[in-house]
């Protein structure tokens, strides 16, 4: 009986792990696309709205969903304090708080932080050029992430279930 319960728990855990990894690869391109939308909004608000950065972050936090909205909401709160911290520092604090809860990886984080290091520090044209560059880089990453999703999502799910079954067989 104990063995049966143990086997059931092993298969369940392994399946959960497989499905979790599958969800991660599925979520990543989706969240990159959300980030791209946020960058587009940032671009148009800088170009046409001429709004200060904290207002734009607030706007994005309302329009976007989930964790991407959280990043911009935390950034808005940090920028709003206006205590003299650098823009990069404000965004970095927000990213540190939220990034772990997203499916995004180091490459996207690097692109985001690179953009943050120049945000708000130059004229409009320069800002737009930096945002466009960040968007191009993200699009490349999104394409790769999408291929990874196609390649690994199903595999992780199947391996999760089968891996659990294999462990149980080996233990018996």
């Amino acid at each position: 009986m104990l063995k049966l319960v143990g086997s059931f728990i092993t298969v369940l855990t392994s399946t959960w792990l497989g499905f979790h990894l599958a969800m991660q690869v599925r979520q990543r391109p989706k969240q990159i696309r959300q980030l791209l939308t946020a960058f587009s909004l940032l671009r148009s608000e800088i170009q046409y709205g001429n709004r200060p950065l904290f207002e734009i972050c607030k706007l994005i936090s309302v329009r976007e969903i989930d964790k991407i909205a959280d990043i911009f909401r935390f950034s808005y709160e940090e920028l709003q304090k206006n205590e003299g911290d650098t823009t990069y520092h404000c965004f970095h604090k927000a990213i540190r708080q939220v990034w772990g809860q997203t499916s995004l990886k180091g490459t996207e984080k690097e692109i985001f932080l690179d953009l943050c290091s120049v945000l708000g520090r130059s004229d409009r044209l320069d800002q737009i050029q930096h945002i466009d560059r960040a968007k191009e880089q993200l699009q490349v990453v999104e394409e790769k992430a999408r291929l990874e999703q196609e390649q690994y999502e199903k595999m992780f799910r199947t391996m999760g279930v089968l891996g659990g079954v294999l462990v149980v067989i080996l233990l018996y």
Binding site: L53, G84, T87, R124
Partner: peptide, 20 residues
């Protein structure tokens, strides 16, 4: 100086093009 500039520009120098 950097902190002061951030305070004055509200982290948004691009909004101050005319002023600059």
């Amino acid at each position: 100086c950097q902190r002061f500039l951030n305070l004055v520009s509200q982290h948004s120098l691009y909004t101050l093009e005319e002023e600059l």
